[in-house]
């Protein structure tokens, strides 16, 4: 298994390299001259050229690419065009807010989605199951930003239970500030998770080995919560992992709605302002997160599944 872990981890290196390269070349194609943006529309051509030189934009593209690669590997993403603040510093400041939001959203999705999925499987083809199906379809169909705005209006403006902006200080306050935004994202994922968990469980419960367990006189509770559950969780973990990446794009919008200074807000502001280094840095960080999350999903999948674990 250690071999598998190492091999899987090493596999991320070429992936990262490829992604960084793609990001670099994509951003060079996008219109908008950074120097022109920094100096304003009325800058003299000499001034623009001078700045080009200073930023290394006059060099051939492959040389720019090598410099960029070298800087990136050292964690240097340059400075923001506007604030002159180091991009890596901005990213490091913003990251925990987004990370907390993602974690809390997944947590909420799991505590709602997995138990309800199991119940739905146990009560398959009953009125309860049908009702749950309808509700989760509605939640699935509702766009996250609408849910977010709705929650914001009801539970923050109309009934001032929760804050409408910011991230708070200290552990408990942070969690308090996270509740509305993570419910917004979490319920959407939970709705998908319920259906997925339920069908995965139903598939397991009809397998041969379950009949063996029942033939041994094992109580129905254990048949479900020990035997079927373990196996039906394997595909669910993968889905959670895949959602984790979708979550990032969700977080961008939700952070705007709840005015949270996370990666989403940072990237979005930078895009509107054409702040190149910040956009570039955020993209690279997003990519890194996606790759690492996928790695963790694969590794945890192998921990759950002995057939992979032992080979």
């Amino acid at each position: 298994m250690i071999k598998y872990f190492i091999r899987r981890t090493l596999l991320t290196i070429p992936t990262m390299f490829l992604c960084i390269t793609i990001i670099f070349f994509c951003l060079r194609v996008v219109p908008g001259d950074p120097a022109l943006i920094m100096l304003g529309e009325n800058a003299t051509p000499e001034a623009v050229e001078g700045l080009h030189k200073a930023m290394g934009l006059d060099k051939p593209i492959w040389e720019q690419y090598l410099t960029f690669l070298n800087d990136t590997l050292q964690g240097d993403f340059g400075k923001s065009i506007y604030s002159e603040k180091s991009v890596s510093k901005q990213l490091i400041e913003a990251f925990p807010h987004t990370f907390n939001l993602a974690l809390m959203s997944i947590f909420i999705a799991c505590i709602i989605g997995i138990p309800l999925g199991i119940v739905s499987a146990r009560k398959h083809n009953t009125l309860f199951d049908d009702g749950l199906r309808v509700v989760s379809l509605i939640v699935l169909a509702a766009p996250a930003f609408l849910v977010g705005i709705f929650l914001l209006i009801v539970f923050s403006v109309q009934i001032p239970l929760f804050p409408s902006m910011g991230v708070g200080n200290g552990f408990f306050e942070k969690i308090y500030y996270l509740i509305l935004p993570s419910i917004t994202i979490g319920t959407g994922i939970a709705a998908a998770l319920i259906r997925f968990m339920s069908s995965s469980m139903i598939e397991e419960i009809n397998k041969d080995y379950i009949r063996t367990v029942r033939a041994k006189g094992i109580p129905e509770k254990l048949v479900f919560y020990k035997h079927a559950l373990r196996n039906s969780l394997i595909p669910v973990v993968t889905v959670i992992g895949l959602n984790m990446t979708g979550l990032l794009s969700g977080a961008v919008i939700i952070e705007m709605i709840f005015s949270r200074p996370g990666l989403g807000s940072l990237a979005l502001d930078a895009i509107f302002a054409r702040d190149f280094p910040v956009v570039q840095g955020s993209l690279i960080l997003f990519m890194l997160i996606v790759i690492i999350v996928n790695l963790l999903v694969d590794l945890s999948y192998s921990l759950l599944n002995p057939r992979i674990r032992q080979s």
Binding site: K207, D208, A215, I218, P306
Partner: peptide
């Protein structure tokens, strides 16, 4: 499993893989 027990036709799939 205690007084009446059963062995099945399909040994390959009759045990929980996990």
């Amino acid at each position: 499993g205690k007084e009446i027990s059963m062995i099945f036709q399909e040994p390959m799939t009759s045990l929980n893989p996990s």
